[in-house]
């Protein structure tokens, strides 16, 4: 995973005082100086060049920017990078194996045709990875799955295949299939 994080753009002249932050991103220790107003989503995408985390609304509705912050899925557009000082962050880039082999949730999405344009997909994957890692015996009824998935918008799939992918993910994570 080392070396996948970019160096970002050089600091620009500004009246905006910088704040030092350090955090662990995908297992790698990061130290940067950032403007307090820099959204965590922009920090991840533009400073760290981890562009798999997408931005769909910047007001916390669509879920495209979901990452895992200190062990809980959260919107990176509803956090400032300074708030992540000392935090442990996981982004979509950390989900597959180092050799690129897909995580069970990613495999399930592919098998079930759970993505079309792929823009919302990293957000769904992070939310589902977080949920299934924290719930060993998830309720796999349609209603329960849909309630968990609510909070992430998809404009392409109509969700049917994402529901199927959730169910398949749970099976794959338990070692079935």
């Amino acid at each position: 995973m080392a070396g996948r994080i970019g160096q970002g753009t050089p600091p620009r002249p500004s009246p905006d005082p910088r704040v030092a932050v350090s955090m662990t991103v995908n297992g790698e220790r990061i130290e940067r100086e950032v403007s307090p107003r820099m959204l965590l989503s922009d920090f991840i995408r533009h400073e760290l060049r981890l562009t798999g985390t997408h931005v769909g609304c910047e007001h916390g509705v669509c879920g495209c920017c979901t990452v895992i912050i200190d062990g809980h899925a959260g919107r990176s557009c509803l956090a400032f990078a300074v708030q992540a000082d000392g935090a442990e962050i996981r982004t979509i880039e950390s989900v597959a194996g180092p050799d690129g082999s897909l995580h069970p949730v990613q495999r399930a999405f592919r098998e079930c045709h759970g993505l079309q344009c792929g823009y919302c997909t990293p957000g769904f994957v992070m939310a589902i990875v977080d949920y299934l890692e924290g719930n060993e015996d998830p309720d796999l009824s349609d209603d329960a799955i849909r309630a968990v998935l609510s909070g992430n918008l998809c404009r392409c799939t109509g969700y049917k295949n994402i529901v199927a992918a959730f169910r398949r993910s749970a099976a794959l994570m338990r070692g079935a299939g």
């Binding site: 809980h72 899925a73 959260g74 509803l78 939310a127 909070g151």
Partner: peptide, 9 residues
Amino acid sequence: VAHIVIRNR
């Protein structure tokens, strides 16, 4: 209240 991911934070 909103959605799980919102309630997480």
